[in-house]
Design a binder for these strands. Structure first.
Lengths: 410, 410
DNA sequence: TTATTTTTATGTCAACTTGATTTAAAAAAA
DNA sequence: TTTTTTTAAATCAAGTTGACATAAAAATAA
């Protein structure tokens, strides 16, 4: 539980040894208990392919650390033989703070290790930069110390979700959907030092995808793309059960993908960017809302309920573009499914999705066994903040290749 | 060196132990020597973060197995202190057969473990199915046994590259760029059993990307997309130094990605597929060549040299689409660079690339440090076959997460 | 310039540590 | 009686540690 971000050693050049194997195995057991628990030690042994005795030892150590607890006789009838003693993951062994900062608001959620929210707060902010955010979080932490002393004591880290794209230094911002001054890749480390806790920074779509993977319908898919409606549009990519970030943490930034040559003008300098057609900002543009706030979304919702022709017009314009985007993502990524979610309400998303049919045929068309190629996720900004918290938990509990390798500062 | 393909255990559920750690460390040392060798044992120790003594033991074992050799005094002047004894990777410790099968021809190349070609053959075939191919390869192996007895003895595996997409059963083929009956995911295992050697099957773009990564300019990039001009168009995705395959081995099949709504009709049923604008098939369509053969490409080359207006017209039509595709891939994948290659000649590729400028701005625009966002790879179909051979070597020598985990049949 | 000493680095040996496995036995239920 | 889980002790395998001999370059003195 180090407060610094570590360089990632490549699996191709790093060896491993017993210690790393051990901490990997610990994480594996913990992860299995968290996601599939409670289980008997024999069960865990079967799942991990590790010997019963090894699991015995590992679980004993985890119990020593108060990360698991035992409970006899809770589960029934598993055949003959000595009944197993169930091992439970202790969700209250630690807590994480998830933050979702966007153009208008800052949402903070404190969760336990399985993602249950035990506290939350929403503040109004306007396009905050790292310094401002650090200040707000410090205040928040101070308040938490009073409100939730025991839990704050056990805080293991902070996850921070921001709207992408993260631009590279010296590049002009790309319009109203972008946040300033978060470009420097050292920001997470800088925040870590100020706040005294490990900080993970991720774009909102990725955080939402993680949330969806852990707490939502994404759970059942190994690979999916999460199309996220913030003010702009982004995608979180979960490939082979892992978040794919890209080199500059900008993977999945499909908002500025050109879907129509010589299409609508975009502040980014291109023409025909997807975001100009499919995004909250595009709705505001269609409605003529010039300076949107956190409340504008309710206006949109109301107009949709009233079947306002301008909203219908927007859906008619957006659907072909979204259909195209779905086809493009399927073609490139070959995932199980595409999940759609974000700040748009469920009903609007539903309207949008249903007007997508028939989808373009794709290489993945017939792979997603159970039917739908595009599904709606558990929407709402809370999922994003919870996902951010989960990212923090993830980075410290979940098994990662990283853990297995040497050369990352022990 | 098992002749079967293994299920991949998830890192989240599989533990590890000493044996797996050992074979991982062996692979790591071998891989480092192959790509960066020769090196002293102390050098290897530093790179892997393993102790000198451990490297000592591992290298001794590798030497025992004739996988490495020593040579004193070859390299000079490395500062003071006891000079190291160089350890060399023995490229002739094993050989691999790489095959590239496409619509018109079958190319076979035998390489050593670092990818040097020691034999090759090109045959004419027409849209071969798995059975036909198996027969051809068996004949080829028989011939090799006579021509290269020692090397054939040490054959460690076969890599087979095919044009994608791999369709799912029951789906109609998608036109002249597609090969029949390769859809079943059990084909590699079936081939393994018939040929008595481990077989890896991959789409041509992926194989070419691997070749490019190992032997070409792709070497210097952690992440890149390789845009491959076969008869159709595909992309091989090297993300974080690993080939990304997608669920149905169809990742990167951008040929049927819709770039223009209501664009040109495509046999796949969609309209406006990229492949209808940017591909060899698109050139043939423009030129009115109805039944192209292996030689048709030379006709195209000749026309290009003569600045035939029909080719110029094709480039003018293709460039905006390719520009768009580059932007899309950059947006989604956030890689270092996009490499272009395949059956198109260097000069045509050069013409095409130069007419791409100015590219659309992208999230990656300013990350690829050394300038060009789109570069030309070492083109030519041989690279694809070599890449296929390398894939086979890779699967048995290179460090993979897989190796570290239990639960894959020891 | 030459001879000598110091510094630095490699390779090797042997003892040690660590963590998973094997073996065995007790306990509990069908 | 059979099956299965839990626990304990002994064993094994692989990486680590620290000491040491050795060799070359760099620094110093003659």
């Amino acid at each position: 539980m180090k407060p610094k971000t570590q360089p990632i050693p490549s699996i191709r050049t790093s060896g491993t040894n017993l210690k790393h194997a051990k901490s990997h195995n610990h994480r594996v057991v913990l992860d299995i208990l968290r996601t599939q628990g409670p289980l008997s030690r024999a069960d865990i042994s079967r799942i991990t392919s590790l010997s019963r005795q090894t699991i015995q030892n590992i679980v004993a150590e985890l119990h020593e650390m108060s990360l698991v607890k035992f409970d006899k006789n809770k589960r029934t009838g598993r055949g003959r033989g000595h009944p197993g003693i169930d091992v439970y993951f202790r969700a209250d062994a630690g807590y994480a703070l998830g933050l979702y900062v966007d153009q208008f608001s800052l949402i903070g959620i404190m969760t336990d290790l399985v993602g249950h929210s035990i506290w939350n707060e929403t503040l109004n902010v306007a396009y905050p930069d790292p310094e401002t955010t650090a200040g707000i979080v410090q205040t928040m932490l101070g308040k938490l110390k009073k409100d939730k002393p025991k839990e704050t004591e056990r805080l293991i880290g902070i996850g921070l979700a921001l709207p992408g794209p993260f631009n590279i230094e010296g590049v002009p911002s790309v319009g109203p959907t972008n946040l300033p001054r978060w470009t420097d890749p050292r920001v997470p480390e800088w925040l870590s030092n100020i706040l005294g806790l490990p900080v993970v920074v991720e774009n909102d779509a990725s955080a939402a995808a993680v949330g969806e993977h852990l707490f939502g319908i994404g759970h059942q898919f190994d690979s999916f793309a999460y199309l996220y409606f913030g003010l702009g549009l982004g995608a979180g990519l979960h490939l082979n059960s892992n978040l794919y970030r890209g080199l500059g943490r900008n993977a999945g930034e499909i908002g500025h993908m050109v879907v129509e040559i010589d299409g609508r003008e975009c502040p980014c300098g291109n023409r025909g960017c997807l975001e100009r057609y499919v995004s909250l900002q595009a709705i505001y543009d269609t409605l003529g809302i010039e300076n949107p706030t956190n409340q504008s979304i309710q206006v949109v919702e109301k107009l949709f309920r009233e079947k306002d022709p301008r909203i219908i017009k927007w859906i008619d314009e957006a659907a072909p573009r979204l259909r195209q985007a779905v086809n493009i993502m399927e073609s490139i990524l070959d995932t199980n499914v595409i999940i759609v979610g974000g700040r748009l309400s469920h009903s609007i998303l539903k309207g949008l999705i249903s007007s997508l049919e028939p989808l373009h045929s794709s290489v993945t068309s017939h792979d997603s066994l159970l039917g739908n190629r595009v599904i709606i996720g558990s929407s709402g900004p809370d999922t994003t903040a919870r996902g951010a918290a989960a990212l923090s938990v993830f980075s410290q509990i979940s098994p990662q290749v990283n853990t297995l390798l040497k050369g990352n500062g022990e």
